[in-house]
Simulated assay, not measured.
Amino acid sequence: MLKKALAEEGHIVCHKTLDTVAPAICSGFATHPHGIAASLALRLAQAGVLRIVPIQPDQKG
């Protein structure tokens, strides 16, 4: 899963937010050194184009 997300400039969705209105990027992936560099969404957030909204693991969108 990690290799595919990195290769496709994607990310991994948090398992606790699957099937919700607002699925979130997995915090483990978002803090992974390769994840930050490879993910288009995270790079756009770093550039200020997108906004990161942290959620609590038990909170659903």
Rank of each mutant, 00 (worst) to 15 (best):
S27C: 11
A7K: 11
H32P: 05
A37K: 15
A22H: 13
C14L: 04
K60G: 07
A7E: 14
T17E: 03
K4R: 13
I25E: 00
K16D: 08
P54F: 04
R43S: 06
Q56Y: 05
I52T: 13
G10C: 12
I12T: 03
D19K: 15
D19N: 15
A37C: 04
G28T: 09
I55D: 00
S39V: 01
V13Q: 01
P54M: 06
H32I: 07
C26T: 08
A7D: 15
S39A: 04
H11Y: 14
C14E: 09
V21H: 09
A24P: 00
A45Q: 09
A38Q: 00
S27M: 12
I36Q: 13
G28A: 08
V21E: 14
A41T: 02
T20C: 09
I25P: 00
A22Y: 12
L50W: 05
I55A: 03
A30T: 09
P33S: 04
M1P: 10
I52L: 15
C14A: 15
K16Y: 14
V13P: 06
L44Y: 12
L2E: 11
G61I: 07
E9R: 11
L6M: 02
G48T: 11
G61Q: 04
V53Q: 03
Q56P: 05
A41R: 02
S39H: 02
I52E: 13
H32C: 08
I55H: 03
P33C: 05
I36R: 09
C26D: 12
V21R: 12
V49M: 05
V49T: 14
A47V: 04
D58S: 12
H11R: 00
H34I: 11
E8Y: 02
T31E: 11
H34D: 15
G61A: 09
H34N: 13
R51E: 13
V13T: 15
M1L: 12
V53P: 00
L40Q: 11
A24S: 10
Q46G: 14
A22Q: 14
H15P: 01
A37G: 04
T17Y: 07
P54S: 08
A22L: 14
L2R: 10
C26R: 01
L18G: 06
V49D: 06
L2H: 07
G48Q: 09
A45D: 04
K16S: 13
E9Y: 05
E8K: 08
I25N: 01
V13I: 14
C26M: 06
I52S: 08
P57L: 08
A38G: 05
Q56S: 14
K4W: 06
A47D: 12
Q46R: 13
H15F: 08
G61R: 06
L42Q: 02
